[in-house]
Amino acid sequence: MKDFPNLSTEEAVHYLKPTFSQTSDGYEAFIRTILGFYEAHGRRFDWRETSDPYRIMLSEVMLQQTQTIRVIPKYVLFLSLWPTFKDLSQAPLDQLLFHWKGLGYNRRALNLRKSAMESERWGWTLPKEQDELRSLPGVGKATAAAIGAFSYHERTIYLETNIRRVLLHCFYPDQEGVKDKELESLLAHLVQRVEDPKQWYYALMDFGVLLKGLIPNSNVRSAHYSKQAKFENSNRQIRGQLIHLLADTGAKEQDQVTSLLSRFEEERVMYCLVQLVKEGFVEETEGTYRIAKV
């Protein structure tokens, strides 16, 4: 198992067997199983060794819908280029998008820089209050909860993909359409019983990674599950290629853009380009398009 090289197949299968009741004894047994697995096989990443809100937020934003193996070098690179919120707030957008290449979802990079700018009001850091964190661009319930738990050891309710998979597999093995509200209620019971919420959530996520490699996706039984649309030949692919074209090679006239992206219909390319202008990624002057200098 590539994510847990010291874990044998026999031992991995052992972790699949138990399901747990929503009782005091069931909660305690579940917690022992999860923390025991983490103590023996937990993964180690640089962002797990810090409580710095900037480093925590950077990793959380990068990890959204992106494989860990792709995040590791980008995380190191970003810290070398922009080691603090203040540094990132001053990053030129074209450089930021150029170095973001490979992580996907460029809107995350734009929101990350906007959040860095807004962090000035807290002295170039982040608060621990959930409502204030969620006021930041692109910071939803899960990201705010992660920052609270990993930076401030707050007993937040942190529900993300891998954690959802664990709860559905271990507590709802035969149920369909399980709502996040019910899972969040379960998490609230569990997090009150653990000593360190930061370690607890890392352990849950790693157990979810283990399950992902062993069983069919439990998340399909979530009431909120929706299959991700294909990337190939999607507008998301066109948007990404437009960003990288302008960030990598500089300003282009409209005809140059459509020619270089001729594998896509011209109408779709122009639609995506106009949307990028509206969203602040790109600016247009007399028919020439470039990454915005805001």
Rank of each mutant, 00 (worst) to 15 (best):
L136G: 06
P197Q: 07
E283T: 14
L214A: 05
E283S: 13
K128Q: 13
H41G: 01
T285Q: 14
P127T: 06
K141N: 15
M57S: 03
L159R: 08
G36V: 00
R48I: 04
A203H: 04
A229K: 15
S59A: 15
L183H: 10
Q175A: 13
Q130R: 15
Y27A: 06
E176H: 10
G138M: 10
K17M: 10
L246N: 05
L246E: 02
L136S: 09
Q275I: 11
R268P: 06
D196E: 11
A116E: 05
T161G: 15
R164S: 03
V220Q: 11
V139G: 05
Y271R: 15
K86R: 15
I69Q: 13
F78L: 07
F281M: 07
R44S: 14
E10V: 12
K227Q: 14
F171M: 06
V269I: 15
I291G: 05
I56F: 02
L63H: 03
Q275N: 12
D248T: 12
N162Q: 09
C272R: 06
A188C: 10
G208Q: 03
L97Q: 10
S21Q: 14
K230A: 14
A145G: 15
P173I: 06
L159D: 01
T66Y: 09
V139Q: 09
Q237S: 09
V257Q: 05
L77M: 11
L103Y: 05
L79H: 09
Q90V: 01
S218L: 08
Y202K: 02
L7W: 06
L77V: 02
T258C: 13
L159T: 02
R70D: 01
V220T: 14
P197F: 05
